[in-house]
Every structure is written in structure tokens, then in C-alpha cells.
């Protein structure tokens, strides 16, 4: 996936990117909370052309028994890409990629949700990607955090999903589809905006330590911008009264 360096031009002569963004500029983001009437909590996030919807059910009795933990709740995350979310249709069903993303997302969320409040129970988090344009795992984490807050699940902080990467040797914030396909590195992170901790961290490609530091700086900047939108979405939904 990485390593197409040189074949495809991703930066304009004036240093801007193909879609006109500056290197440290993210795509436009829109967030709504409380969008699914049947779920206990839900959120809708549009990030660039990505569209993700997250639903939360629970806490509920954990079945089957063997998944129960006597001292805390388990968070059961399913990240799923709709068949029509990518340019080539995806065959429905779990695959290795979605299983891995579901696992690390669940573990990230378990580090902020006060799971010890609900021993033996289960909190179901369903992340559905309806349209994918690079960076869906991050959009999914953002959506899941807002949906958990909307469901009244206690958390010590939310998690913001953000990513930076490298194209043509230049570190840029928030890779779009072409940049993801032909770039040299991708650094997705889940950041706790209030404490600055990282609950989710992946990376692939090739980054020097200096490049990593810059990408990291971009991610933290983007996280605080997205955090404001997450808060606003929740406050809007709370004051509407039907959260």
C-alpha cells in the first residue's frame, strides 16, 4: 500500500496538496449525536467524504456467560464497512482487517470508559462505515466516543481519532484517499483531548523520529479541533432533550 513514492504527484508546486489543503490542514468535519432512535446512544460523523455511524447498546447482561468479567464490563466493538462504502464492493462479513480494528478500538475505549462500574455486563458498540475515503478507523473511534457519551456511559475522557502521514517526503495532516494509497506513511492515533494520553496508536510506512514528532504535533492540533465539534454535537443533542 505504501511506497508508491515518485510515481504519483501528491503535492502542488506551491506546496499545497492536490485538494488545495495546506500540509497541516484537516478535511472538514461534521458531527451529530443522537441520530439513531432505537439505540441507547448514537453518533454520525462526516470527515471529508468518510461517513461513519456508531450505535451503543447497553450496559446489558453479558451473553454468553464466558465473556463475563466479574470485576468490570466488557466492551464489544464491531467495526464494519458497508458493502457499498468503497469503490470496489466489499463482500459482507468480518475480515481480518475489521477484526483487528474492532479489537484495538475496544481496548482503546476500555481505557476511558469506567468499566468497573458495571461488572458482569456488556456494552455493545457498533461502528458502521457508510462511505470510506481513508482514515475510517479514526472516524469510527470519534463516532464511538460521541455515541458512548450520548448513551450516558461514564467515561473519564473521550477519544478523538486523528491521523497524519507522509507524502512525497513531507509530513501532512489527515491523509485523503490518494495520499493514503500513494503516500509513504500513516500514523493514526486516538487521543484523550483533556489529558493528552494516547489510547490508540498504529503506524505503517516509513517515518524518521523528526517526522514522527511533527506528525504527532499535527495530530494533537487536529484532536483539539475535532474535540470542540464532539462537545458541540453532544451539547446540541442534550439541549434538544431527546438525546
Amino acid at each position: 500500500m505504501m511506497g508508491g513514492y515518485g510515481d504519483i504527484k501528491l503535492l502542488n508546486d506551491d506546496g499545497t496538496r492536490l485538494d488545495g489543503r495546506a500540509v497541516d490542514e484537516m478535511r472538514s468535519v461534521e458531527i451529530k449525536a443522537g441520530v439513531l432512535p432505537v439505540a441507547d446512544g448514537s453518533a454520525w460523523v462526516k470527515h471529508g467524504l468518510n461517513v461513519a455511524v456508531a450505535a451503543v447498546y447497553g450496559p446489558m447482561e453479558a451473553h454468553p456467560r464466558k465473556i463475563q468479567r466479574q470485576d468490570r464490563a466488557v466492551i464489544d466493538v464491531r467495526y464494519n464497512m458497508a458493502p457499498f462504502s468503497t469503490s470496489d464492493r466489499i463482500r459482507p462479513g468480518f475480515n481480518r482487517r475489521s477484526r483487528e480494528i474492532s479489537k484495538v478500538t475496544a481496548e482503546a475505549l476500555e481505557s476511558v470508559v469506567l468499566v468497573e462500574r458495571y461488572p458482569r455486563s456488556k456494552i455493545r458498540v457498533e461502528i458502521e462505515i457508510l462511505a470510506a475515503e481513508a482514515g475510517t478507523r479514526c472516524v469510527g473511534i470519534t463516532a464511538a466516543s460521541v455515541a458512548l457519551a450520548d448513551a450516558g456511559i461514564p467515561m473519564r475522557d473521550m477519544i478523538v481519532g486523528v491521523a497524519s502521514g507522509k507524502i512525497e517526503g513531507v509530513v501532512v495532516l489527515d491523509l485523503d484517499k490518494a495520499e493514503d494509497n500513494y503516500g509513504q506513511a500513516d500514523l493514526p492515533m486516538g487521543i484523550l483531548p483533556n489529558t493528552g494520553e494516547m489510547a490508540f496508536l498504529q503506524m505503517d510506512g516509513d517515518l524518521s523520529i523528526e517526522e514522527y514528532n511533527l506528525a504527532c504535533e499535527y495530530n494533537y492540533k487536529a484532536a483539539s479541533e475535532i474535540h470542540e465539534l464532539m462537545k458541540q454535537a453532544l451539547l446540541d443533542s442534550a439541549s434538544r432533550g431527546d438525546a
Binding site: D40, G41, G58, P59, A149, D150, A151, G152, P154, M155, L234, S237, A238, A243
Partner: peptide
């Protein structure tokens, strides 16, 4: 939690917007 913050006496608590 998402909700209304109330500080009364020496205790701060949040009246949640939604709770199970």
C-alpha cells in the same frame, strides 16, 4: 457523563441527559 453540572454544598455532580 453528559448532562447538567450541579455544585451544591461541597459536592459536584452531573445530572445525566440520558442514563440506563
Amino acid at each position: 457523563k453528559l448532562g447538567e453540572l450541579k455544585i451544591g454544598g461541597d459536592v459536584a455532580h452531573v445530572v445525566p441527559t440520558f442514563t440506563k
